[in-house]
């Protein structure tokens, strides 16, 4: 799903009265599967659309997003992908990615 659709879905959930959080790739170092600006939208039951990593950190981001929905406070997350983990999710080499998670309020 491209980023345009992610925001559309976020807006639709919000419209339907669902609490929503948005996660955005803010900075990357080394090789990272998704470019800066990539987004993911999460609603309060944990369902999400979009991608910030192509799979390796989505679980942790969704977990943080649920927390952000509860607290209403944005969080900055940082993930290092070791070469071994990168290999496990099918990436050629490691990298580091910073993801900002914020409530849609």
């Amino acid at each position: 799903m491209d980023d345009e659709r992610v925001l559309e879905q976020a807006a639709a959930w919000r419209e339907a009265g669902k609490p929503v959080a948005l996660a955005t790739v803010v900075q990357t170092w080394g090789s990272s599967p998704r470019p800066v600006g990539s987004q993911l939208a999460v609603q309060d039951d944990g369902t999400f659309v979009g991608s910030v990593s192509g799979g390796c950190i989505e679980g942790a981001v969704v977990h943080a997003a649920l927390d952000v929905i509860k607290t209403g406070t944005p969080q900055m997350l940082e993930f290092g992908v070791t070469n071994q983990e990168a290999w496990a999710v099918g990436l050629a080499c490691g990298g580091k990615v910073q993801v900002r998670v914020e409530p849609l309020d």
Binding site: E4, L7, A10, L22, M76, R100, E102, D105
Partner: peptide, 28 residues
Amino acid sequence: MKAATLAQLQRDRAAKRPTVLVTDLDSN
């Protein structure tokens, strides 16, 4: 992101208006 910001962003994209969202990472 504020819902109003998202709504405006959606309008800008429908109007094919190049847009940049500037977020202060300290104050949000």
